[in-house]
Design a protein around this nucleic acid. Structure first.
Lengths: 133, 133
DNA sequence: TATACTATTGCAACTCATTTGCATTTGCAA
DNA sequence: TTGCAAATGCAAATGAGTTGCAATAGTATA
Protein backbone atom coordinates (compact mmCIF):
# COMPACT_ATOMS: atom_id res chain seq x y z
CA UNK A 1 0.00 0.00 0.00
CA UNK A 2 1.15 3.50 -0.57
CA UNK A 3 -0.19 6.92 0.22
CA UNK A 4 -3.61 7.19 1.80
CA UNK A 5 -6.24 9.72 1.02
CA UNK A 6 -6.29 11.71 4.24
CA UNK A 7 -7.80 15.13 4.91
CA UNK A 8 -4.37 16.68 5.38
CA UNK A 9 -3.17 15.34 2.06
CA UNK A 10 -6.28 16.52 0.20
CA UNK A 11 -6.10 20.01 1.61
CA UNK A 12 -2.38 20.20 1.08
CA UNK A 13 -2.69 19.27 -2.58
CA UNK A 14 -5.56 21.71 -3.03
CA UNK A 15 -3.52 24.45 -1.45
CA UNK A 16 -0.51 23.70 -3.65
CA UNK A 17 -2.72 23.76 -6.72
CA UNK A 18 -4.14 27.13 -5.81
CA UNK A 19 -0.86 28.98 -5.66
CA UNK A 20 1.37 30.04 -8.48
CA UNK A 21 4.41 30.47 -6.29
CA UNK A 22 6.34 28.05 -4.11
CA UNK A 23 5.04 27.91 -0.54
CA UNK A 24 6.70 27.07 2.74
CA UNK A 25 5.63 24.44 5.26
CA UNK A 26 4.68 27.20 7.69
CA UNK A 27 2.54 28.96 5.07
CA UNK A 28 0.82 25.70 4.19
CA UNK A 29 0.20 24.89 7.83
CA UNK A 30 -1.25 28.34 8.36
CA UNK A 31 -3.47 27.95 5.30
CA UNK A 32 -4.83 24.61 6.50
CA UNK A 33 -5.52 25.96 9.96
CA UNK A 34 -7.28 28.99 8.45
CA UNK A 35 -9.35 26.58 6.39
CA UNK A 36 -10.58 25.10 9.65
CA UNK A 37 -8.41 21.99 9.56
CA UNK A 38 -6.81 21.20 12.91
CA UNK A 39 -3.54 19.82 11.66
CA UNK A 40 -0.19 19.56 13.30
CA UNK A 41 2.89 21.20 11.84
CA UNK A 42 4.79 17.91 11.98
CA UNK A 43 2.15 16.30 9.83
CA UNK A 44 2.52 19.01 7.22
CA UNK A 45 6.27 18.39 7.08
CA UNK A 46 5.74 14.66 6.73
CA UNK A 47 3.10 14.98 4.04
CA UNK A 48 5.31 17.33 2.09
CA UNK A 49 8.18 14.85 2.31
CA UNK A 50 5.82 12.16 1.05
CA UNK A 51 4.64 14.27 -1.90
CA UNK A 52 8.23 14.95 -2.86
CA UNK A 53 9.14 11.26 -2.55
CA UNK A 54 6.20 10.37 -4.79
CA UNK A 55 7.35 12.90 -7.33
CA UNK A 56 4.18 14.97 -7.08
CA UNK A 57 5.90 17.99 -5.64
CA UNK A 58 9.36 19.43 -5.63
CA UNK A 59 11.27 21.05 -2.87
CA UNK A 60 13.29 24.17 -3.31
CA UNK A 61 15.56 26.29 -1.24
CA UNK A 62 15.74 29.90 -2.29
CA UNK A 63 18.27 30.89 0.30
CA UNK A 64 15.78 32.22 2.81
CA UNK A 65 16.62 29.64 5.44
CA UNK A 66 13.41 27.75 4.79
CA UNK A 67 12.21 25.23 2.21
CA UNK A 68 9.49 25.88 -0.29
CA UNK A 69 7.35 23.46 -2.18
CA UNK A 70 5.55 23.49 -5.49
CA UNK A 71 3.71 20.93 -7.57
CA UNK A 72 5.70 19.44 -10.42
CA UNK A 73 5.23 21.34 -13.64
CA UNK A 74 5.44 19.42 -16.88
CA UNK A 75 5.91 22.69 -18.68
CA UNK A 76 9.66 22.56 -18.50
CA UNK A 77 12.24 24.23 -16.34
CA UNK A 78 11.75 27.61 -14.80
CA UNK A 79 13.67 30.14 -12.79
CA UNK A 80 12.75 31.83 -9.53
CA UNK A 81 12.90 35.51 -8.81
CA UNK A 82 12.99 36.53 -5.15
CA UNK A 83 12.22 40.13 -4.29
CA UNK A 84 14.63 41.31 -1.62
CA UNK A 85 12.16 43.98 -0.52
CA UNK A 86 8.89 42.14 -0.02
CA UNK A 87 10.14 38.56 -0.11
CA UNK A 88 7.71 37.51 -2.80
CA UNK A 89 8.75 34.69 -5.07
CA UNK A 90 7.88 34.60 -8.75
CA UNK A 91 8.29 31.73 -11.18
CA UNK A 92 9.68 32.69 -14.56
CA UNK A 93 9.77 30.61 -17.71
CA UNK A 94 13.27 30.06 -19.01
CA UNK A 95 14.45 29.09 -22.45
CA UNK A 96 15.67 25.51 -22.18
CA UNK A 97 18.82 26.31 -24.04
CA UNK A 98 19.86 28.72 -21.30
CA UNK A 99 19.96 25.99 -18.69
CA UNK A 100 21.39 23.47 -21.12
CA UNK A 101 24.30 25.78 -21.81
CA UNK A 102 24.77 26.32 -18.11
CA UNK A 103 25.23 22.58 -17.66
CA UNK A 104 27.76 22.26 -20.44
CA UNK A 105 30.76 23.10 -18.28
CA UNK A 106 29.73 20.61 -15.59
CA UNK A 107 29.30 17.85 -18.13
CA UNK A 108 32.65 18.65 -19.64
CA UNK A 109 34.14 17.76 -16.27
CA UNK A 110 32.44 14.41 -16.13
CA UNK A 111 29.70 15.48 -13.75
CA UNK A 112 26.26 13.98 -14.29
CA UNK A 113 23.77 16.82 -13.87
CA UNK A 114 20.38 15.73 -12.55
CA UNK A 115 18.86 19.08 -11.70
CA UNK A 116 19.52 22.65 -12.48
CA UNK A 117 18.03 25.85 -11.15
CA UNK A 118 18.42 29.50 -11.88
CA UNK A 119 17.78 31.90 -9.07
CA UNK A 120 17.43 35.65 -9.46
CA UNK A 121 17.32 38.30 -6.77
CA UNK A 122 16.34 41.90 -6.98
CA UNK A 123 13.43 44.27 -6.60
CA UNK A 124 10.06 43.40 -8.07
CA UNK A 125 8.02 45.90 -10.07
CA UNK A 126 5.54 46.53 -7.23
CA UNK A 127 8.28 47.43 -4.78
CA UNK A 128 10.07 49.56 -7.36
CA UNK A 129 6.83 51.48 -8.02
CA UNK A 130 6.18 51.95 -4.30
CA UNK A 131 9.67 53.34 -3.74
CA UNK A 132 9.25 55.89 -6.51
CA UNK A 133 6.53 57.30 -4.18
CA UNK B 1 35.58 53.92 11.94
CA UNK B 2 34.96 50.69 10.18
CA UNK B 3 36.37 47.20 10.31
CA UNK B 4 39.35 46.52 12.56
CA UNK B 5 42.25 44.32 11.84
CA UNK B 6 41.65 41.59 14.38
CA UNK B 7 43.18 38.10 14.55
CA UNK B 8 39.84 36.51 13.73
CA UNK B 9 39.41 38.65 10.67
CA UNK B 10 42.94 37.99 9.42
CA UNK B 11 42.66 34.23 9.82
CA UNK B 12 39.18 34.18 8.35
CA UNK B 13 40.32 36.02 5.23
CA UNK B 14 43.37 33.77 4.91
CA UNK B 15 41.17 30.71 5.22
CA UNK B 16 38.76 31.99 2.60
CA UNK B 17 41.64 32.72 0.25
CA UNK B 18 43.01 29.22 0.62
CA UNK B 19 39.91 27.39 -0.50
CA UNK B 20 38.52 27.08 -3.97
CA UNK B 21 35.07 26.14 -2.80
CA UNK B 22 32.50 27.93 -0.64
CA UNK B 23 32.90 27.14 3.06
CA UNK B 24 30.46 27.12 5.94
CA UNK B 25 30.72 29.02 9.21
CA UNK B 26 31.25 25.71 11.04
CA UNK B 27 34.06 24.70 8.69
CA UNK B 28 35.71 28.07 9.10
CA UNK B 29 35.39 27.95 12.85
CA UNK B 30 36.91 24.47 12.89
CA UNK B 31 39.75 25.63 10.66
CA UNK B 32 40.57 28.56 12.94
CA UNK B 33 40.49 26.36 16.03
CA UNK B 34 42.76 23.83 14.32
CA UNK B 35 45.11 26.68 13.49
CA UNK B 36 45.42 27.30 17.21
CA UNK B 37 43.12 30.30 17.38
CA UNK B 38 40.71 30.25 20.30
CA UNK B 39 37.76 31.88 18.63
CA UNK B 40 34.08 31.73 19.42
CA UNK B 41 31.59 30.50 16.85
CA UNK B 42 29.47 33.62 17.31
CA UNK B 43 32.43 35.75 16.37
CA UNK B 44 32.91 33.79 13.18
CA UNK B 45 29.28 34.43 12.26
CA UNK B 46 29.63 38.11 12.99
CA UNK B 47 32.86 38.49 11.06
CA UNK B 48 31.34 36.71 8.10
CA UNK B 49 28.36 39.03 8.19
CA UNK B 50 30.75 41.96 8.26
CA UNK B 51 32.76 40.66 5.30
CA UNK B 52 29.56 40.25 3.33
CA UNK B 53 28.37 43.74 4.29
CA UNK B 54 31.69 45.20 3.15
CA UNK B 55 31.36 43.40 -0.14
CA UNK B 56 34.49 41.32 0.38
CA UNK B 57 32.67 38.02 0.56
CA UNK B 58 29.42 36.63 -0.65
CA UNK B 59 26.98 34.37 1.05
CA UNK B 60 25.30 31.47 -0.64
CA UNK B 61 22.73 28.90 0.24
CA UNK B 62 23.01 25.69 -1.70
CA UNK B 63 20.02 24.07 -0.10
CA UNK B 64 21.96 22.14 2.52
CA UNK B 65 20.37 23.94 5.43
CA UNK B 66 23.53 25.92 6.05
CA UNK B 67 25.14 29.00 4.53
CA UNK B 68 28.40 29.03 2.70
CA UNK B 69 30.78 31.87 2.06
CA UNK B 70 33.33 32.69 -0.57
CA UNK B 71 35.46 35.69 -1.42
CA UNK B 72 34.16 37.87 -4.20
CA UNK B 73 35.63 36.89 -7.53
CA UNK B 74 36.21 39.63 -10.07
CA UNK B 75 36.41 36.99 -12.74
CA UNK B 76 32.73 37.12 -13.47
CA UNK B 77 29.75 35.04 -12.51
CA UNK B 78 29.99 31.37 -11.84
CA UNK B 79 27.73 28.45 -11.12
CA UNK B 80 27.86 25.90 -8.32
CA UNK B 81 27.68 22.17 -8.72
CA UNK B 82 26.69 20.17 -5.63
CA UNK B 83 27.37 16.45 -5.64
CA UNK B 84 24.40 14.67 -4.13
CA UNK B 85 26.63 11.72 -3.19
CA UNK B 86 29.58 13.25 -1.38
CA UNK B 87 28.25 16.76 -0.78
CA UNK B 88 31.24 18.43 -2.35
CA UNK B 89 30.69 21.79 -3.94
CA UNK B 90 32.47 22.88 -7.10
CA UNK B 91 32.57 26.30 -8.67
CA UNK B 92 32.16 26.37 -12.43
CA UNK B 93 32.78 29.22 -14.82
CA UNK B 94 29.70 30.19 -16.79
CA UNK B 95 29.40 32.07 -20.02
CA UNK B 96 28.02 35.49 -19.12
CA UNK B 97 25.48 35.33 -21.86
CA UNK B 98 23.85 32.34 -20.20
CA UNK B 99 23.01 34.30 -17.08
CA UNK B 100 22.18 37.42 -19.02
CA UNK B 101 19.62 35.53 -21.02
CA UNK B 102 18.21 34.02 -17.86
CA UNK B 103 17.57 37.51 -16.53
CA UNK B 104 15.84 38.69 -19.66
CA UNK B 105 12.45 37.38 -18.68
CA UNK B 106 12.65 38.97 -15.24
CA UNK B 107 13.62 42.33 -16.70
CA UNK B 108 10.79 42.10 -19.20
CA UNK B 109 8.44 42.08 -16.21
CA UNK B 110 9.93 45.19 -14.73
CA UNK B 111 12.02 43.40 -12.11
CA UNK B 112 15.42 44.87 -11.32
CA UNK B 113 17.82 41.94 -11.07
CA UNK B 114 20.71 42.49 -8.68
CA UNK B 115 22.09 38.96 -8.44
CA UNK B 116 21.75 35.78 -10.31
CA UNK B 117 22.96 32.27 -9.57
CA UNK B 118 22.89 28.97 -11.34
CA UNK B 119 22.90 25.88 -9.20
CA UNK B 120 23.46 22.39 -10.52
CA UNK B 121 23.01 19.09 -8.74
CA UNK B 122 24.15 15.64 -9.69
CA UNK B 123 26.95 13.17 -9.25
CA UNK B 124 30.56 14.30 -9.50
CA UNK B 125 33.13 12.41 -11.53
CA UNK B 126 34.84 10.91 -8.44
CA UNK B 127 31.59 9.46 -7.12
CA UNK B 128 30.62 8.20 -10.56
CA UNK B 129 33.98 6.44 -10.86
CA UNK B 130 33.69 4.92 -7.39
CA UNK B 131 30.23 3.55 -8.16
CA UNK B 132 31.43 1.88 -11.34
CA UNK B 133 33.58 -0.23 -8.93
C1' DT C 1 -19.85 -5.41 7.15
C1' DA C 2 -16.30 -6.74 10.47
C1' DT C 3 -11.26 -7.39 10.96
C1' DA C 4 -6.59 -6.68 10.72
C1' DC C 5 -2.80 -4.43 9.03
C1' DT C 6 -0.16 -0.49 8.24
C1' DA C 7 0.07 4.39 7.05
C1' DT C 8 -0.81 8.59 9.25
C1' DT C 9 -1.17 11.63 12.99
C1' DG C 10 -0.31 14.35 17.37
C1' DC C 11 2.55 15.49 20.92
C1' DA C 12 6.61 16.48 23.24
C1' DA C 13 11.20 16.56 23.21
C1' DC C 14 15.22 17.10 20.48
C1' DT C 15 18.75 18.80 16.98
C1' DC C 16 21.28 22.19 14.91
C1' DA C 17 22.34 26.57 12.47
C1' DT C 18 22.08 31.10 13.50
C1' DT C 19 20.92 35.22 16.46
C1' DT C 20 20.74 38.30 20.44
C1' DG C 21 21.63 40.74 24.89
C1' DC C 22 25.02 42.16 27.70
C1' DA C 23 29.19 42.76 29.97
C1' DT C 24 34.15 42.77 28.77
C1' DT C 25 38.09 43.37 25.89
C1' DT C 26 40.76 45.52 22.34
C1' DG C 27 42.07 48.10 17.98
C1' DC C 28 43.20 52.51 16.75
C1' DA C 29 42.86 57.55 16.14
C1' DA C 30 43.76 61.71 18.49
C1' DT D 1 48.45 57.55 26.87
C1' DT D 2 43.60 57.92 26.67
C1' DG D 3 38.89 57.34 25.08
C1' DC D 4 35.60 55.26 22.51
C1' DA D 5 33.50 52.50 19.12
C1' DA D 6 34.18 48.02 17.25
C1' DA D 7 34.88 43.30 18.30
C1' DT D 8 34.49 39.41 21.35
C1' DG D 9 32.78 35.65 24.54
C1' DC D 10 29.26 33.53 26.84
C1' DA D 11 24.82 31.99 27.75
C1' DA D 12 20.34 31.95 26.47
C1' DA D 13 16.98 32.32 22.88
C1' DT D 14 15.02 31.54 18.24
C1' DG D 15 13.17 28.94 14.63
C1' DA D 16 13.03 25.41 11.01
C1' DG D 17 12.94 20.86 10.75
C1' DT D 18 13.24 15.94 12.87
C1' DT D 19 12.33 11.87 15.81
C1' DG D 20 10.32 8.39 19.09
C1' DC D 21 6.30 6.62 20.51
C1' DA D 22 1.67 5.72 21.43
C1' DA D 23 -2.96 6.53 19.48
C1' DT D 24 -5.90 6.92 15.37
C1' DA D 25 -7.81 5.96 11.01
C1' DG D 26 -7.68 4.50 5.86
C1' DT D 27 -8.21 0.39 3.15
C1' DA D 28 -7.75 -4.19 1.53
C1' DT D 29 -9.45 -8.60 2.51
C1' DA D 30 -12.16 -12.22 4.61
Amino acid sequence: MTSRNTPTRRHLLAELENTDRPVSAAELHQALVSAGLDVNKTTVYRQLDALVAEGLASELDLGEGIRRYELHHDNGEHAHFICTECGDVYCLPVDETVLARGCKEAEARGFAVTSCSLELRGVCSSCAAREAH
